[in-house]
Design a protein around this nucleic acid. Structure first.
Lengths: 123, 123
DNA sequence: ACGCATTTAATGCCGTTGCATAAAATTTAG
DNA sequence: CTAAATTTTATGCAACGGCATTAAATGCGT
């Protein structure tokens, strides 16, 4: 219980720190930016902000800002939803797709390193 | 691998969020403040800042500020180390001990809730 | 059809964090 | 013994995140 919590804390800190460094230095992406791109690529379609909110571990406001940063970097584009004009769709751009593809191996490498000592979860 | 990472992300987010809320509302402590108190209580002696740094998942600068906050709240006291006058000892006060004892069940309850669905780590 | 509650995303504000740096003390090299 | 390098903690600074709030659009009740 407490042990599990300490494990989570340790791995989270180590992985986050490494991801920030590696993704930042090599690809100009923060962990949150990468995660958002990754979710969009995974779904392979444009998503509503709210859908992303359910999948990413960020508050709605933080997500809004991440998307704003990604848009400024031309990695995604925002568009209003026709059906519900409060909604905002987020589309990944070709450049965003390319950046994600380029960063993915880096992320995998970091995770492989952090979780090298076979943690393995039951369930 | 990626699954483990997602597990860590999810649990970390959920637990952190709940700890911030519960420890904050009920005991006026942030997760970092609690963790520092907890480490000192666990060792049951005064520790150097640097020792704490190795145990807590915070940068040295962040830790320095956490200790400053705790001191302002009179939960710990800082004292210079005689042997090496660069060093700083951190002692927990009676009030700090009391606050920790009071907050501990809250922390345990949160963790029990978050990790209720038997996560269990192999090793 | 109208007004009020609700939903959705963006923004103001503030607290915390990490990096780079500063300041003080100690250790090491010569 | 002195000067440079190193260690230890604190601080300036900028970025990021969450909460509360705002603005806009939708839905609901009457």
């Amino acid at each position: 219980m407490v042990d599990t919590w300490h494990y989570v804390l340790a791995k989270h800190a180590k992985a986050m720190c490494a991801l920030e460094r590696e993704l930042g230095d090599r690809h100009g992406l923060g962990p949150s930016e990468f995660e958002v791109l990754d979710r969009i690529v995974h779904h392979d379609r444009k998503l509503r902000i709210q859908e992303l909110c359910d999948e990413v571990h960020l508050s709605q406001s933080a997500l809004s800002r991440v998307v704003a940063r990604l848009e400024k970097a031309a990695l995604v584009s925002r568009g209003v939803c026709d059906a519900d004009r409060r909604g905002v769709f987020v589309c990944i751009t070709d450049e965003g797709r390319a950046r994600h593809a380029e960063a993915l191996p880096t992320q995998r490498a970091v995770l492989a390193d952090v979780f090298a000592d076979a943690p393995a979860l039951t369930r």
